[in-house]
Amino acid sequence: MPLDRPLNSLGFAKAPADTRVVVAMSGGVDSSVVAAQLAEEGYDVVGVTLQLYDHGAALAKKGACCAGLDIHDARRVAEEMGFPHYVLDYENIFKDAVIDEFADSYLAGATPVPCIRCNERVKFKDLLETARDLEADCMATGHYIQRKDGAHGPELHSAEDANRDQSYFLFSTTPEQLAFLRFPLGHLPSKAATRELAAKYGLAVADKPDSQDICFVPNGDYASVIEKLRPDAIDPGDIVHVDGRVLGRHEGVIHYTIGQRRGLAIGGLSEPIYVVKLDVDAKQVIVGPKEMLATRIVPVREINWLGDAPITSRDEWHISVKVRSTRPPREAILRPISDTEAEVELLTPEQGVAPGQACVFYETVGTRILGGGWIWAGGR
Rank of each mutant, 00 (worst) to 15 (best):
A179W: 00
R164M: 09
A17P: 11
P236V: 00
R20N: 09
G373C: 04
G47N: 14
D18W: 07
S320W: 01
V33F: 12
V21C: 14
S9F: 15
N219H: 14
S224T: 15
R76M: 09
N304P: 01
S211C: 12
I369P: 01
D149L: 14
E331Y: 08
V225T: 11
I311H: 02
M1W: 07
E129M: 07
A294R: 13
M1Y: 10
D232S: 10
I311A: 00
L170D: 02
L188I: 06
M1T: 13
K322M: 10
A131D: 04
P231T: 09
H152E: 15
F169N: 11
C138P: 00
P16F: 10
D308Q: 10
H187G: 13
G267Q: 05
G220E: 04
D104N: 12
T367P: 08
G378Y: 15
K290N: 10
S320K: 10
D161I: 15
L278Q: 03
L278E: 00
C215S: 07
I369C: 11
K62T: 14
A17L: 15
G27T: 08
S31H: 12
R335N: 15
R195V: 02
A15P: 02
D221R: 05
T49H: 09
A110F: 07
K290E: 08
P355M: 00
E345D: 12
G28F: 05
R327Y: 13
T364Y: 03
I286A: 01
E155W: 00
E176A: 12
L38K: 08
A64Y: 10
D165A: 06
I234G: 00
E120I: 07
V98T: 09
S26Q: 13
D243I: 07
D279T: 02
E331P: 14
V34K: 03
E160F: 15
D243A: 13
G28T: 06
E302N: 13
L347K: 14
E91Q: 07
Y362T: 00
A233M: 11
K148D: 08
M139S: 14
P329M: 03
G307F: 08
P336M: 04
M292P: 02
L347I: 15
W374S: 15
M292K: 15
I303R: 10
L128Y: 08
V122H: 08
D243Q: 08
V225L: 11
Y43C: 08
F180A: 03
H241W: 10
